[in-house]
Simulated assay, not measured.
Amino acid sequence: MRRRGIAPPRTRSKQQLISSTESRIVRLVSDGYTNRQIAMAIQVSEKTVESRLTRLFARTGCRSRVELATASLEGRLAEKTAVS
């Protein structure tokens, strides 16, 4: 695959831990929100949303918003909990 210039699929672990903000972004993506709408909803810049989505894609092995939403629905994404 690499010789043809195609990136091989990333390995995926059973569950990926994501922060509460990232979890909210995933929910909004699942609801069909655009990056601009997500930025307005969580009161950050559109560039921050793009950056967080890029990191989520890299950590989860997802290549699209649809795959990210599917991973969430299938329970492959777990939210980090604060340890006291």
Rank of each mutant, 00 (worst) to 15 (best):
S64I: 13
R36F: 07
S13H: 12
S72E: 11
G75A: 11
S20P: 00
S23F: 11
S51D: 11
R63V: 08
S45G: 09
R36S: 12
R76L: 04
L17K: 10
I6W: 14
L68K: 02
R59I: 00
G5S: 01
A41L: 05
V26Y: 04
L77V: 03
E79I: 15
M40W: 11
R2S: 14
L28M: 04
Q15N: 12
V66I: 07
G75Y: 02
V83S: 15
M1K: 06
R55I: 15
L56C: 08
E46R: 08
Q15D: 09
R65E: 10
R27L: 07
R10S: 15
T81L: 08
Q37I: 13
A39S: 09
M1S: 13
R76W: 00
G61H: 09
A7V: 11
V49G: 02
N35E: 14
S19D: 01
R59L: 02
T34D: 03
A82T: 08
K47M: 03
M1A: 14
V26A: 05
A39W: 05
A58T: 05
S13L: 10
G32W: 09
A82Y: 01
K14W: 06
T11E: 03
M40K: 05
G61L: 14
C62K: 12
R24N: 07
V26T: 07
S30L: 12
A58K: 02
S72D: 14
V44M: 13
N35F: 01
T11Q: 03
E79Y: 15
R76S: 04
P9V: 05
V66N: 15
P8W: 01
A39Q: 05
T34H: 13
A41F: 03
T70K: 13
R10D: 11
R55T: 02
I42S: 08
I6K: 10
V29A: 15
L77A: 04
S51I: 11
R27E: 15
Q37T: 12
R3S: 07
I42W: 13
T70N: 09
R10W: 10
R36Y: 03
V44T: 04
S45Y: 11
C62R: 04
T21V: 00
R76F: 00
Y33D: 10
S64F: 08
A7H: 12
R3K: 15
V66C: 05
T34C: 12
Q37H: 13
R4F: 14
P8S: 00
S30M: 15
V29I: 08
A41H: 06
T54Q: 04
K14M: 07
K47V: 10
P9T: 06
V66F: 05
S30W: 06
R2N: 12
Q15M: 12
R27H: 12
K47H: 02
T54K: 01
R4V: 01
E46P: 01
V66M: 06
S23H: 10
D31A: 09
G75S: 06
I6R: 10
E79F: 10
R4Y: 10
K80V: 01
R3E: 15
C62L: 13
F57P: 03
T34F: 03
S30I: 03
C62P: 02
T11I: 05
R59V: 00
E74S: 07
R10K: 09
C62W: 06
R3F: 09
I25G: 10
F57Q: 14
R55P: 02
S84K: 01
A78G: 15
G61W: 09
L28K: 04
I25P: 07
S72R: 11
K47G: 06
I25C: 06
A78E: 13
T81G: 15
M1G: 13
A69G: 02
R3H: 06
G5P: 00
